[in-house]
């Protein structure tokens, strides 16, 4: 039985990674799961300089999910390279995907250039960050901006580039095609859906930031639909995510066209979920006599 997948020339031992921001750089979850068993670890977003993030409260639970506005707090690329990359390199079987964030094209370029000589396997570019030069609209909400930033990343990156798409758009396939046209090696989707929660007793927003990104099983049908639409439109590999809680959910994404999957919010509900999803996919394959996980990718048309 083959669980290996090839994402843009990088071979993962299995098709499971974690969604950026839910897993830090792995250390905290290493107390609960064997990090060597996860196909790839996607780190929390890292910028050129440390970011303090948003005021609290930064999260609120919602029905079947949560909204977050952490504000991409991160220690900056220098400390990240000194501390987090060497930590992740201890898990030789697991690929390292570094998620990159920035407020301007220059910010992104600086991080990608800094990572060129580091031993990381792939880069994931978070284009849901607000573009300060373009009045704060996210890079990922305009196809021209998606193509332009993808080109800039590809010019500088030594590792394969995964563009992470925002679902807060009218036509996700258009964004996917723009990233592909810009030279993206792979796509990941979906990022969180912008949401809001109001505390009726205090008559205030539940989050200090007013809005936050909705994640968790509440968004899964939207995510599966978007993965399907993107899979129909592009020919590059797709990492699917959005509300995966178990192996059945992961298989839905794979059958919709994802070559691999990311697990995010479910880590908060069950710190051992990554290993359980991998085992669950294997059991499904055994029960259904499937020899290769890749045979299931996009099998529902």
């Amino acid at each position: 039985m083959n669980m290996k997948v090839n994402i843009a020339g990088v071979e993962w031992n299995n098709p499971v990674t974690v969604a950026s921001g839910t897993f830090g750089s792995g250390k905290e979850y290493g107390e609960f799961v064997d990090l060597n068993k996860i196909g790839a670890i996607t780190t929390k977003g890292v910028a050129n300089v440390p970011w303090p993030g948003n005021p609290t409260p930064r999260i609120a639970e919602t029905y079947g999910g949560m909204i977050n506005a952490i504000g991409l707090q991160n220690p900056g690329i220098d400390l990240f390279c000194q501390r987090d990359i060497p930590y992740l390199q201890k898990f030789a079987d697991t690929k390292i995907i570094v998620n990159v964030c920035g407020k301007s094209t220059e910010d992104y370029c600086e991080v990608v250039e800094r990572l060129a000589d580091e031993k990381v396997d792939m880069l994931e570019i978070n284009i849901s960050c607000p573009n300060v030069k373009e009045g704060g609209i996210a890079f990922g909400q305009d196809p021209k901006a998606v193509e332009a930033i993808t080109k800039e990343m590809k010019k500088r990156a030594k590792q394969p580039v995964i563009m992470k798409l925002s679902p807060n758009v009218t036509n996700i396939a258009e964004m996917a095609l723009a990233a592909e046209a810009g030279g993206a090696d792979a796509l990941s989707l979906i990022n969180t859906l912008t949401g809001m929660k109001i505390d009726i007793n205090r008559r205030t927003f539940a989050l200090a930031n007013k809005t936050g990104g909705l994640s968790g099983p509440a968004i899964k049908p939207v995510a599966v639909r978007m993965v399907y639409q993107v899979a129909q439109a592009v020919s590059i590999p797709i990492i699917g995510m959005g509300g995966i809680m178990n192996a059945e959910d992961a298989l839905e994404f794979i059958m919709a066209g994802a070559n691999a999957v990311s697990i995010g919010t479910a880590n908060f509900h069950n710190p051992k979920v990554t290993e359980e999803v991998i085992a669950g996919i294997e059991s499904f394959m055994k029960e259904n006599n499937i020899k290769d996980i890749n045979d299931l990718v996009g099998c529902v048309k």
């Binding site: 839910t22 830090g24 303090p52 993030g53 609290t56 999260i59 949560m66 977050n68 952490i70 908060f268």
Partner: peptide, 26 residues
């Protein structure tokens, strides 16, 4: 503070520190 992971990974439940924290670098 409102927490999500409870183990230090998600950075939801932070407080302001006087000094720069060695882990978060802010």
């Amino acid at each position: 503070e409102k927490m999500a992971c409870g183990i230090g990974a998600c950075l939801a439940c932070v407080c302001k520190s006087k000094e720069k924290d060695s882990h978060t670098n802010v």
